[in-house]
Amino acid sequence: MKTILILTALLVTSLTAFSQKYFTKTANVTFFSSTALENIDAKSNQTTSIIDFATGEVVFKMLIKTFQFEKALMQEHFNEKYLESEKYPDATFKGTIDNIASVNLSKDGEYKVNVTGELTIHGVTKTYSTAGVITIAGDKISVNAKFPVKVADHDVKIPGAVKDNIAETVDVTVTADYTPLKK
């Protein structure tokens, strides 16, 4: 009897181990800078990400060049002078969902989670911790998170002439729909 139990447990773990990684390559990342002079927002929908629900690990990779601005000149300055996308083509996030155990993949609903990890922008890595929401509907999983990023923390230099146009802290919003990773 004991053997059967162990083997059944093994069976369960082995089956779940395959369907725990979820993946997207069209995650939306937007950032929003608000000052008295002007609001600037930029969007990219080509961010890739994997969540491993077995371990709670989560990673994101965004290509800086894919951010679209309202004005072409802003986009050029963003790439050329502020984020230096030729030198630092991508930004990455590598972290863990602290309370991954509370997320039940087989039960539809909204789960509040906390994510902690390291965000690398402009070649500078900083630890962030933020709250997010995971929504499960069938085998569709969506993720929502919003957190502030201080521009100076990532060594992004804003020249004096545009200091009043660009906020010191920008709000970053991530929304993504995941599908099971088949590999």
Partner: peptide, 28 residues
């Protein structure tokens, strides 16, 4: 159980990426 254990053990080395970022790079 035996079958799944077998599958698990054969697949685990392939799945065991040191880093999820590497997996992301190889996926996309």
């Amino acid at each position: 159980s035996l079958l799944s254990t077998f599958i698990m053990f054969t697949y685990v080395p392939a799945m065991a990426q040191d880093d999820l970022l590497d997996l992301l790079d190889s996926t996309v």
